[in-house]
Design a protein around this nucleic acid. Structure first.
Length: 388
RNA sequence: GCGUCGGUGGUAGAGUGGUCUAAUACACGAGACUGUAAAUCUCGCGGCUUUACGCCUUCGUUGGUUCGAAUCCAACCCGGCGCA
């Protein structure tokens, strides 16, 4: 993997870049589609290409559970397995430490709403999983079987899955974590990062080091909403020799606060290396993330929301189940060039959603992904033209 | 015409003397969702209001029994089935 910054904005930290991998080049800033189980739900891989998606992220934990990394490997790796020709990354399973742990216990997402008062203190453990120095004991959501995932395991699995970019195994701490919990958690994530780096280096040495197919490894910065922890984490991870970086966890409530936190975090990382922001990407997030200097970012919103009936459009969100839409013969988004907007009416899409037809989810998923990819493209244009 | 079974909220369908505005499901309405536990979840769904488990109105219609009826009785109306 190679990363070239083509243009650095003078107005902000935004930059235009080219992320080159063995499976092609990603023009950054770019939206990364979430293909957790090696598929964008409801779309064929060909459909995903047609949405303009440049890169996908799959998940170590989920592919390990099913079908198992060995099966992926015997199919020639995840690209061949799913027929995807463009770049790919895999998440390490770190997010599942949160979502299957404290996230599920407290019914909260990674970004907290204002007014939440519960806290997680140092030493506390989630109900369903157990976090130790070695890693995390999980229960399979499929059959309840006991599983263990730690830094070494995660890297070994990701090497077999074979994405272009893999991530260090981290703890994605709950936004409810207090300062002391966060501090300990970040320190452990740093220790795990070191183990991941060493494990992957050993693999590369065994393989004869380098070559076009060399898998890049990103370190993950944590620290929650505390600026000192974020900076410390960025400095520590930034100095370890990773190929790039990912920012995980939550970092504030308000968009302005998030931008500020992101900027100070990214300010501690080596400029020349790519930064990926994990799991943030509502349309409203694009501007501040890109202005802060984020190169790539993934988010389940376009695909997840689509299946739940929410479309992202140039005039805001549209809820597909509203009765009034049945009488609306306009395209989903008149300003969009995607084939859904060119060929179908809101009326028809609303009908499909009311009827519970899969095609509705498929079409809105397609549109949402197209819309976000196009939005990223518009921001690249803005950087190019010095507007942002 | 006789016999028989049955008529419950938008629909289907529980309930067979008080704890019934009436289970449950669906439909409908309003929300939520940011490295996917998720084609999911939450809330509302007779009316009114000082939003309380307060008042009023509802279980085909009318009348009756009872302290009290969706529940028991009578007549009537409507529907299914059987026999003429």
């Amino acid at each position: 993997m190679e990363f070239n910054i083509i243009k650095q904005s003078k107005k902000s930290k935004a930059r235009l870049g080219l992320l080159k991998t063995a499976h092609g080049t990603v023009e950054t800033p770019a939206f990364v589609g979430v293909a957790t189980k090696a598929t964008i739900k409801t779309l064929s891989t060909e459909d995903v290409e047609r949405t303009g998606t440049q890169m996908l992220i799959s998940n170590t934990f989920h592919l390990h559970l099913r079908p198992g990394e060995n099966l992926v490997k015997t199919n020639g790796g995840v690209h061949k397995f799913m027929g995807w020709k463009r770049p790919m990354m895999t998440d390490s399973g770190g997010f599942q430490v949160f979502s299957l742990g404290f996230g599920q216990d407290h019914g909260v997402g990674k970004i907290l709403k204002k007014g939440e008062e519960r806290t997680i203190e140092e030493g506390m453990q989630p109900q369903k999983i157990k976090i130790t120095e070695k890693g995390v004991e999980f229960r399979s959501p499929i059959d309840g079987a006991k599983l263990f995932l730690g830094p070494k395991e995660s890297i070994a699995i990701q090497e077999k899955i074979g994405a272009d970019i893999i991530l260090a195994f981290d703890e994605c701490p709950s936004p409810l974590a207090d300062y002391d919990y966060m501090k300990k958690s970040v320190e452990r994530t740093h220790r795990w990062a070191k183990i991941c780096l060493k494990a992957h280096k050993n693999t590369l040495l065994r393989q004869g080091f380098g070559g076009q197919g060399k898998q890049a490894l990103y370190g993950i910065v944590q620290g929650g909403k505390w600026e000192d922890l974020r900076k410390e984490s960025a400095r520590t991870i930034g100095a370890m020799g990773f190929d790039g970086f990912a920012i995980g966890g939550e970092f504030g409530y308000e968009k302005e606060e998030m931008e500020k936190m992101l900027r100070s975090t990214l300010g501690e990382l080596p400029e020349e290396k790519p930064r990926h922001l994990l799991g943030v990407g509502h349309p409203e997030d694009f501007e501040y993330m890109i202005r802060a200097g984020v190169d790539t970012f993934d988010c389940i919103a376009p695909t997840h929301y689509a299946r739940h009936g929410t479309a992202f459009t140039s005039s805001g969100r549209i809820y597909m189940k509203k009765t009034v839409l049945l009488k609306d013969k306009k395209p989903l988004d008149p300003k969009c060039d995607c084939y859904v907007c060119k060929n179908y009416t809101r009326s028809y899409l609303a009908h499909l959603f009311r009827a519970g037809e899969y095609t509705g989810m498929h079409l809105v998923t397609f549109h949402n992904l197209y819309y976000l990819n196009n939005l990223a493209k518009e921001f690249r244009e803005k950087i190019k033209n010095g507007l942002i």
